[in-house]
């Protein structure tokens, strides 16, 4: 809490680091979970498929904030105590996975049926077909949508302020209440979020071009 923005910069950057850390873990877990659940949904595994649909609907139709409260304040009642850091990444992972599941399901569904039929006609077993045809083509098609969601997850790491995790918004809010320099500090925080989101978006577009298979399209 120094005199100028320059003095506050290290604290804000530290907050940004914490935001990035918790987002990175949350995004990674949710993407892996999303691919697995999306594949199960796509394959139409009985019972499991319906259970996943319920999970997806519950997490997509309730606010992340209430999910965070559930993890942080309600779970201790049944003996599970989570630290602010654990709450933050688990909340981002569970919430994000619900959306990623739908994204990957749509991606797997968008793989041209002819490709899958061709693989099956060549005698590839269903599992090999999924791993060698549906997965590589489907995942490529989902890069834009999954990136949008990942950016959303990074932005949503700001809500971890309610459990007291020291991420960027928490740090900025603390600095503002000490210094009252609202525009500078929240402006700087907004700029940091904005630049990070832009960088993630640009990296994803580069990644997408690099991986593109001629003749295939993106999902949606």
């Amino acid at each position: 809490m120094g005199e100028t923005l320059l003095d506050d910069l290290p604290a804000l950057l530290n907050g940004l680091g914490n935001s990035l850390l918790v987002s990175a873990i949350g995004i990674t877990v949710s993407v892996v979970l999303g691919i697995a659940l999306g594949a199960a949904r796509n394959a139409g595994v009985p019972v499991l498929s319906q259970a996943i649909a319920v999970y997806v609907n519950v997490f997509r139709c309730t606010p992340l904030l209430v999910q965070i409260f559930m993890l942080y304040f309600a779970l201790p009642e049944i003996g599970i105590r989570l630290s602010p850091f654990q709450t933050s990444w688990i909340a981002l992972a569970l919430w994000g996975a619900a959306y990623h599941t739908e994204i990957f399901r749509a991606g797997f569904k968008a793989v041209p049926p002819a490709e899958i039929l061709a693989a099956r006609a060549l005698g590839m077993p269903a599992r090999r077909t999924f791993l060698d045809v549906t997965l590589p083509l489907g995942l490529r098609a989902t890069i834009p949508a999954a990136t949008t969601m990942a950016i959303g997850q990074f932005r949503s790491s700001s809500f971890m302020v309610v459990v007291g995790y020291q991420e960027l918004t928490y740090v900025a809010n603390g600095l503002v209440s000490q210094t009252f320099r609202v525009f500078e500090i929240f402006g700087m925080a907004a700029l940091m979020y904005f630049l990070t989101c832009t960088l993630i978006g640009a990296a994803s577009r580069g990644f997408e071009t690099w991986l593109r298979v001629p003749g295939t399209r993106t999902a949606r």
Binding site: R155, S157, S158, F183, F186, A189, Y193, F194
Partner: peptide
């Protein structure tokens, strides 16, 4: 569009909440 889509809604709320009085 670009700026608002890249910033968390909470930061926008805080900015609005503090900046109207300012």
């Amino acid at each position: 569009v670009f700026v608002f889509r890249g910033v968390p809604v909470l930061v926008i709320m805080f900015l609005g909440f503090y900046s109207f009085p300012a």
